[in-house]
Amino acid sequence: MSAPDPVSPLRFERTTGDVVEVTARRGRTRDVVYAGRARDLPLPAMGEAIWSDTFVAASTRPDRWWIIGPARAPAETAARVSGLLGTGAIVVDQSSGFETVDLVGAGWREALTQGCRLDLDPAIFTAGQAAATTIAQINVIMIPHPSGLLVLIPATYAQHFREWLTHLCGESHS
């Protein structure tokens, strides 16, 4: 487990992005995955994440994906994803349903042992993976990347979660 790095204190930023929930219809998973691969929206396997220039695609449920991209006009991202993936996919705009928070700083793994029940050892959980779990009693999506962790928090819990994170980051500085 990496020790907290005094040079880069733990901090977090709210990022305004669009979130789309994609589900392959019964029996259409292969169609959807092929369509994504062909159109520059590769869809990862369960428990994994793919980072590309335009989107982050993560899967924390079988046959389902979270597509996270830059904020656009309402429902525009969803419409674009739907166009790419075709009729085999049910595409639902969740841009307002989640707040995305980017937690950066070397100490994030150690800090999150308060409240997160997953094994955060870098040998176990690292960039390229994704997990749905509970942090501080809130169901969240965790997507680690080389310099930190992207967290998707249900929007109505987001303020509570941010207050909890602020408390946590403050503690890790002291």
Binding site: E21, R25, G27, V92, Q94, S96, G97, P154, A155, T156
Partner: peptide
């Protein structure tokens, strides 16, 4: 299990 039914929670997305 074999039905073409997708259930999506959109509670937090819509005000």
């Amino acid at each position: 299990p074999q039905a073409d039914v997708t259930i999506t929670d959109v509670g937090d997305h819509w005000a």
